[in-house]
Structures are given as structure tokens and as C-alpha cells.
Design a protein around this nucleic acid. Structure first.
Lengths: 163, 163
DNA sequence: CTCCGATACTTGACATATCAACTATTGACC
DNA sequence: GGTCAATAGTTGATATGTCAAGTATCGGAG
């Protein structure tokens, strides 16, 4: 037989209303990745909106919850968020102003600023847990559990290839 | 046998220095997706920096190139970028100031603003084409061609599940 | 102890995104 | 023809990211 399906104009190509097919597998994967992440991020944004926090703020709070009593310093937070320090400083300013985070100079090394989740911050996170689970499930709604695992592994490979 | 590997603390879990495993496949996929997109975006940002344009600007220019002589109106651009109009207006302000884009009121419907790529804009894009291909390839460096296609399909499913 | 390079932020300036509110048109209904 | 809701954009305010430049502190060499 000549062909089973070849490149019968992909789903993404239609979404973008492109007349031409993608230049390469790499290009389509790249565009698809950014676009899918935008969709997932948007869903998370909606999920968190009722609580008055943004997605990056939520990530910071969750990381601090994971850090426990010892807290984390600003640059450690930046590193885990794959982000530059300036943005973190300003986000922490806002989170501290709303009493979800507490900061203080480290005694050991006075250059460091250690950050902790406050009790109020913990209460806020606790309230989000239920809807957060729902948003997670929504992200893989179209996938079987096996496909979900497959996706996770492919994403791992993409990141390690770019490292 | 008891188990082959179970959830032997995932790659992502280590990247994030998390002591606890992810709550669910959905959660890990969700986090992995956002994180991988950040990495890919960063690579694109570096690739485009020498040309003095950002990733969103590059996307707008490419969409306008694809639109050809008829151009596109602001909201059509917004729709293809999965983004709100306000951001587009301001980005177009900057692109027009740099002479890569031209805008004019539509004659048919004076509410619309039609946007076109200028000759200078085309020249700029032409110069980026080579490195753009390289960045695309880098994104799937860790993947075989078959895995690349697999990833594309899984991402399609995620988006259609969230639609 | 002092100087000096490295480290850990912080601040300023600009590009992106988002929401809400406002202006200009359009098109449909009466 | 006039009213009015819907459509297309723009503008203002806030949050996020990024780079470049500045401040405070640390740690080691002399």
C-alpha cells in the first residue's frame, strides 16, 4: 500500500489555521509544547483566581510549604522556579504584604534572606488543595494513565536534551 | 515478583528537589508541561536575542508573514496567539515603531485595524530562518523522530481534553 | 586586619499578560 | 431613520519576567 495516513495536515496546523505544514517535527513539537503549556497555564489561572493568587505565586507558596520550618532563601526559590532573582524578590514583597510569607535575614550569612510560609499561607494552600487536584486531572483528561506516563517521560527527555 | 520499578522517584521530582512523589500522574504531567515549556521558551529567547526581538514578537511576525498581502486584524492575531487583545495592541505599537509592521483602518469595517508585515519585517524574518531551524531541532534533541511525533499527538490530546 | 573578588540580593527600566472600563462602529429591529 | 446591543480596539492598573547596575556581606590572600 502507498500510505496509511502520511502527514494529513495535523491537528495543530488546523488550530493555527496554517495553510502550510510545519517545517519539521521539531518545529511542530516546539510550537505544540508552548501552546499546550499556555492552555494548561490558563486553566490553572482560572482555578486559582477565586483565591486571589496567580500561578507563580501558588508555586512559590507550594515550594515553601515543601521546605518546611527551615524555609528557603531567595536564590534557592529562583532556582527551583527556573527564574531570575529580581522577579522573585518582587513577588515575595507582595506575598509578604499579604501575610502569606515571612522573610528575615539569615543569621549565619547575613547576605541571605530566608523565606517561610506563614500559618495563614498554609491555611490558604489547604483551601486550594481540592480544586488543585481537579485542575491536575483536567490537564490529562484526554489521556489514559499510560499515555500520561508516556507524556511525562517524553517531556523529561526534551528537558534533558536542552540542558 | 514484587515490582519492577514502581515509582522510583521521577526525574522531575529530582529536578525540583522534592522529597515527596507527585500527588498524581495528572499533577506531574501538568508541572512537567509548564516546566518544559519554560525551558523551550528560554532557548527560543536566547536564539532570537541577537535579532532584538522577543518570542511573542517573533510569533506575531511569522503569523503576519503567513497571512500575506491581505494581512490580519488585531483580534484575529489575538486568537491565533491564544492571547487577549490588549497585549496585542501594545506589541503592535512597538513593532510598528520599529517599521516591521504596518497598520491601517479597514475600509470595509472601520472598527477593524488590519496589520501587515512590511518589507523590512520580511527581511528580518528571513535572517532568523536559519537559527530558527536550529532552535527547533534543539527542542527535540533528546527525542527520536518517532518520539517527536508521539509527543505531538499526546500534546494534541491534552489540548483537546482541555478545550 | 585589609583589600578584593564572589555571592545574595535589590532596584530601575522595559516587554508581556490580564482584567476592567471606555470609544468607535456596525447591524438589526422597530 | 433612530435606538441599542454586539463587535473591535484602546487605555489604565497590576503582576510577571528579564537585563543591567548598585549595595551589603562573606571569605580568602597577603
Amino acid at each position: 500500500m502507498l500510505m496509511a495516513k502520511s502527514s494529513a495536515s495535523s491537528a495543530l496546523q488546523k488550530e493555527l489555521k496554517q495553510s502550510k505544514p510545519f517545517r519539521s517535527v521539531g518545529h511542530e513539537a516546539s510550537v505544540g509544547l508552548l501552546r499546550t503549556a499556555d492552555v494548561v497555564r490558563r486553566r490553572w489561572t482560572e482555578t486559582l483566581a477565586p483565591f486571589g493568587i496567580t500561578v507563580p505565586q501558588y508555586n512559590v507558596l507550594r515550594i515553601l510549604r515543601g521546605a518546611g520550618k527551615e524555609g528557603l532563601c531567595t536564590l534557592e526559590l529562583a532556582e527551583r522556579l527556573i527564574e531570575r532573582a529580581p522577579g522573585i524578590t518582587r513577588m515575595l514583597d507582595r506575598l509578604e504584604a499579604r501575610s502569606w510569607v515571612r522573610r528575615e535575614r539569615s543569621v549565619d550569612d547575613r547576605r541571605e534572606v530566608r523565606c517561610y510560609l506563614t500559618t495563614q499561607g498554609m491555611r490558604l494552600l489547604a483551601r486550594t488543595d481540592e480544586v488543585a487536584d481537579q485542575a491536575d486531572q483536567a490537564a490529562v483528561l484526554g489521556l489514559s494513565k499510560a499515555e500520561g506516563r508516556e507524556l511525562i517521560q517524553l517531556l523529561d527527555k526534551v528537558r534533558s536534551g536542552l540542558a
